[in-house]
Design a protein around this nucleic acid. Structure first.
Lengths: 194, 194
DNA sequence: GTCTATAGGGCGATAGAC
DNA sequence: GTCTATCGCCCTATAGAC
């Protein structure tokens, strides 16, 4: 396999594993097994585990921002209030890219790390900048969007959707905090278990 | 030192370390050093690192819920809309208890863990139940409260407040997403650096 | 109640063959 | 481009003295 493709397939596998186990909890061996290569090969290709995570983070940010910009561009000069809902749906759709939003969230939790911390802060600031400057969100709109995004990330990370159908209180929480996304995250939780 | 006091001082130290480094990233030795005891003593007292984290999580939840209930009880039969702001302020005040809210957030990120995951989900559900059943929040109010709580946790975890005065875009983000809490988290970030 | 010493296991990274 | 073998470190947990 050419190096470019192999790189991408390892990054994809790493995104899923980092998203589920976190940075420290992920072993390069687990990433290697998920990608179907040997552990030393992963290290050889990315240098260090830290560098691998930084590339996963950058790739996740690139895709998130590209998705937002795609929605903004396609939206055209129509009504402004519809854009918020469109970007919100596009954001939730990114949950299909397994581990992508969770890897971002894991990076956000690593602010104390001298290398990952600065990259994570820069990434979050870039997201906010795109919402304000390119999507035209007010600061209140950006606040609501980011806050609910963090809530959604947390609900997925904690695995609450896995109890949606068996635990009425889990259902109530999800319906309250992520109403329109409930069907999606419940479906993804089932797929994940299978 | 009597066992009870020693226990509490280790739990306090562990809360700070777990909050900053996460569950997997925390060594029992780091907790021991922060508490001024030897590493084997920490393990001896709590059995395992996992058990220690579970106790940190439970202690954090207990304090969070006790704080909420205190505000609800003191508030009396007065205006209902004021209670939301009071609980919000009480929540932000818990940031002074170093690592407490961050340890909770770290637990929320461990949903995939077979032992910690269930405890974290039960904890979040209990918080939601208190907001709905004891504070009398509507589901929309609970959603807004929890979402902004997650956002605040994320801003603190990522260390954004450390750039508040040097980076105008960090300031803009914090002012947008945690307006009334900005002075507090900036002060805490400074204390933490010193 | 608290320590020192250390066993035991796992992980990131390197060496080097093919 | 990819692997096997392995080094060396770090970390949890145990043993056992004081």
């Amino acid at each position: 396999m050419p190096a470019g493709e192999r790189r991408e397939s390892i990054l994809e596998a790493a995104t899923a594993v980092f998203g589920e186990r976190g940075y420290v909890g992920t072993t390069t061996d687990a990433v290697a097994k998920a990608a179907g290569v040997s552990q030393p090969y992963v290290v050889r290709m990315f240098g260090t585990k830290e560098q691998l995570f930084l590339e996963v983070l950058q790739r996740a940010l690139d895709r998130l921002l590209a998705t937002f910009r795609g929605v903004i561009a396609e939206h055209g000069p129509g009504g402004k209030e519809a854009l918020g809902a469109l970007i919100g749906n596009a954001y939730a759709d990114l949950l299909r890219d397994r581990g992508l939003l969770l890897s971002l969230m894991q990076a956000f939790m690593l602010g104390a790390d001298p290398v990952i911390g600065p990259a994570a802060r820069a990434g979050l600031l870039e997201v906010y900048a795109v919402l304000r400057d390119e999507a035209g969100f007010t600061s209140d709109e950006a606040d609501a969007f980011l806050s609910h995004g963090m809530m959604l990330n947390t609900l997925v990370a904690i695995g609450m959707a896995g109890s949606y159908e068996t635990d009425p209180s889990a259902r109530e929480l999800i319906d309250a905090c992520a109403p329109s996304k409930a069907p999606l995250i419940v479906r993804l939780a089932k797929q994940h278990r299978a």
